[in-house]
Amino acid sequence: MFVGITNTPRNYAWGSDGAISALLGFEASGAPEAELWLGAHPGSPSRIVGSNDTLLDVVDGRLPFLLKVLAAGSPLSLQAHPTMAQAAEGFARENALGIPLDAPNRNYRDAFHKPELIYALSDEFDALCGFRPAADLRNVLEAVAPEAAAPLLERLTGDESLRGVFEWLITRGEGVDELVAAVSGLSGASTPELATVSLLAENYPGDPGIVISLMLNRVTLKAGEALYLPAGNIHAYLSGLGIELMASSDNVLRGGLTPKHIDVPELLSVLDFRPLPVPYLMPRSPAAGVTVFRPVDADFALLVIEVDAVLPLDGPAIALCLDGEFTLGGASTLHRGDAVYISDESSLDVRGAGSLVIATS
């Protein structure tokens, strides 16, 4: 079964000026365009083309993934997501406390985890992701701001100190405001780290996240590259256009660079402070013109199709045409900006050329 779906970009303040509409050939909304949701999450379920129904009315049970077109015109908040066990426990706990699901201080809006991948569409997609080793952080600080960062360097005794340094910063411990002001005053963009500090200081003056950004891996994806961000990985998208695919959840623990609620104890309970390399998600190519991004421990995969292909499907899927024209199963033809929900298909015959992304479980 093929069901045409659509949606309207969400106008979060950090969104772009018309990038999603330009990508998909829509009329610009006139408001910031941050995320276009394609899925059955109740926060913004896709609408059925030609109907007043949404995908919630069509899907049998819970659709386990959510596909988004994301356009960051300015930096998003520092954030992390819980494991399935943490989400279930937190959701039950906040329900028992009687916290409304739409309350600003609600951490867990559902009982599910939210691992995610980001696939770059723009020539450059900038992000922060995961903690860098303490030795690398020390090298960065001593290179760009040895005097300003002295209070932090004193606390940085090794990888085991990263949690304490982070907690000192995010709780605005003694000397943090002065440190943030000193680091924010650094000029120039001679390194990606300094450029990021300047960007964050401009958008979130006085926020401890300005200094926290130096603790994190700074990465620039090229078009066609992807990151995978599992539970506990602190990250922030800085700028760029991409496809985001995640488990269908809205559980976000924020860690700065936002006016929204920050629950420090809860954030600390989910964060993974282990220093890790940049979490590039390497694809495989089972056939020419077919690229598959499949995290080993997630319940979703992203397929990028450029030519004719026959694809096995393990469950429902959502396809979005970014360029060109494709016919699916001999029954549904997609042009740029068209999207379709696919169910009850164990194999999908794709005919066409251009760029088609398919999210599946």
Rank of each mutant, 00 (worst) to 15 (best):
A149L: 09
A150Q: 15
P151S: 11
P151T: 11
L153A: 10
E154V: 14
E154G: 14
R155K: 15
L156S: 09
L156M: 13
T157V: 15
G158F: 10
G158L: 05
G158T: 07
G158P: 01
G158A: 06
D159P: 02
D159V: 04
D159S: 07
D159Y: 06
E160I: 00
E160D: 15
R163M: 14
R163K: 14
V165E: 04
F166L: 03
E167H: 09
W168P: 03
W168A: 02
W168F: 13
L169G: 03
L169E: 00
I170K: 06
I170E: 01
T171D: 12
T171V: 14
T171K: 13
T171Y: 08
R172W: 08
G173K: 00
G175V: 12
V176I: 10
V176L: 06
L179A: 10
V180C: 05
V180W: 05
A181H: 12
A182C: 11
V183P: 01
V183M: 12
S184G: 10
G185I: 09
S187R: 13
G188S: 06
A189Q: 13
S190E: 15
P192G: 08
P192A: 08
P192W: 08
E193G: 08
E193V: 12
L194G: 07
L194Q: 10
L194R: 10
A195K: 09
T196Q: 05
V197N: 03
V197L: 06
S198Q: 15
S198E: 14
L199P: 01
L199Y: 10
L199V: 06
L199I: 08
L199Q: 11
A201N: 03
P205H: 02
G206K: 06
D207M: 02
D207H: 07
P208D: 02
P208H: 00
P208V: 06
P208N: 06
P208W: 01
G209V: 07
G209M: 02
G209C: 09
I212D: 01
S213D: 06
S213T: 04
S213P: 04
L214M: 12
L214E: 07
M215S: 07
M215F: 13
T220I: 14
T220W: 05
L221Q: 12
L221Y: 12
K222V: 13
A223W: 06
E225I: 00
E225T: 11
Y228A: 11
Y228N: 11
P230H: 06
P230W: 02
P230Y: 00
P230F: 01
P230S: 10
P230A: 11
G232I: 10
N233M: 15
N233W: 13
N233R: 13
I234E: 02
Y237M: 13
Y237C: 12
S239V: 08
G240T: 04
G242P: 03
I243W: 02
E244V: 02
M246F: 05
A247V: 09
S248V: 06
N251M: 04
L253S: 05
L253E: 04
L253Q: 09
